[in-house]
Design a protein around this nucleic acid. Structure first.
Lengths: 227, 227
DNA sequence: TTCGACATACCGACCAGTATGTATGTTAAT
DNA sequence: ATTAACATACATACTGGTCGGTATGTCGAA
């Protein structure tokens, strides 16, 4: 919490103040949604004054946009894209990521910060919407890229369309997060994880011949667009 | 809009007044979310005064709860459960329902009223949460019941667990609704419909022998929990 | 080294506007 | 005449945001 240089808070610490406001803003928005987030609550949580806040941010919206860009975007990066870029078997990686999702009660009950904000603000504030859309797109593209790599490595079925499969996964994941949030019940989320993982396993390429050059799709499955 | 008995609004019409408040409340909540929904906006839309509103509802929350119970619950009934109860091939029925989802711009952009409210209020208001959970449960159970019937009729794969499959469908459906809402783009929703329908088709039972008593699962698929 | 001049960071009282909710008056229907 | 069904005016709290002022830090010149 403190910067380690003093145990007494520095009297001037602009970056630190800004960062504390962002963190507290993120938490308050996560708890109450953006529209109902109270500036005064953020100030109380940080011991920052209103003047200081409005020195660093020109409006509540501006603070919200900064929270999206500097905190929420980073969460997706850290939770998904970071691992997907490591080049391992993408299905295994995706399963690991999904299973690594927090099952802490407060996280399950609070839902996904990205989804929460998108749900609330997409229809109301174009700047929010655009920012969040960019995060969704990066997320989807990151999954799709990993799947494409998996296809060329032979670990992922070649009959699926990576970009659409990625969208399918995201939709499913978010959907379950919402159901669990509504139920306020970790068990619901665990069922979701199980079903998502089961579906992810169905994306694996069928056992391929190890040697012998080009693999041949001996029996193409009947269902074409099957996800 | 009027009740057809007069073109001049009746001076006393308690049920009508209440109903108009519910409708306007629903619309306002749909547009702005519950917390940001303005009582004054509802009053302006209905030409009802504050005293009248608080005669019929004891608080804003009370109005919100009534909107959930009397309007939103009914939407799910009409859109899903009504058709699922008709006893036709459940997969066909589900495909029809999904494809019948409005692609009007304002509906896609506004998202699903049930999801919107659940997302916003589940963590904040237990009464809301309970009401919405009941709707979700009815929804899921309605789908599951239809799937079970399909299984015994031979139109639905027997290796899937109806209740979990129903949850899977709901999660997926909601997830795509959210993506489309964030994108504010009907095209995104059309992609979602296509993928949901593709997945639904994969739930059909494999071609069964018409005659000859018990069908045999000659080749059980390798993936057990596959959805 | 010291000091003056200025920029940055922050303070907190205050503002106009808006929110839900209430107290009380009035009128239509039985 | 009684009461259900409103209408009106108001109470109270809280919202995001502003503004004059102050404390701290920086830096160039003497």
């Amino acid at each position: 919490m403190s910067n380690g240089r003093d145990n007494k808070r520095r009297l001037r610490d602009p970056e630190g103040t800004r960062e504390r406001l962002l963190q507290a803003g993120y938490r308050e928005i996560y708890r109450s949604g953006f529209q109902s987030a109270s500036i005064d609550t953020i100030l109380a949580a940080t011991n920052v004054t209103k003047g200081a806040l409005y020195y660093h941010f020109e409006s509540k919206e501006d603070l919200g946009h900064a929270v999206v860009e500097e905190i929420i975007a980073k969460l997706t990066q850290d939770k998904w894209l970071h691992y997907l870029r490591q080049g391992k078997n993408p299905i295994d990686t995706l399963i690991d990521i999904v299973q690594a999702t927090s099952v802490r009660k407060e996280d399950v009950n609070g839902g996904c910060p990205l989804v929460n904000l998108a749900q609330e603000m997409s229809a109301l504030d174009e700047k929010f919407r655009t920012q969040l859309e960019a995060i969704f797109n990066d997320w989807q593209e990151g999954i799709a890229t990993a799947l494409r790599r998996g296809q060329s490595q032979g670990t992922v079925r070649r009959d699926l369309v990576p970009h659409e499969t990625a969208g399918f996964l995201i939709a499913m994941y978010e959907g379950y997060v919402l159901l669990a949030k509504n139920a306020q019940d970790v068990k619901v989320w665990n069922v979701g994880i199980r079903n998502i993982v089961g579906w992810l396993k169905s994306l694996r390429a069928p056992r391929q011949p190890r040697k012998g050059g080009r693999r041949l799709l001996s029996k193409r499955r009947a269902v074409k667009q099957r996800q």
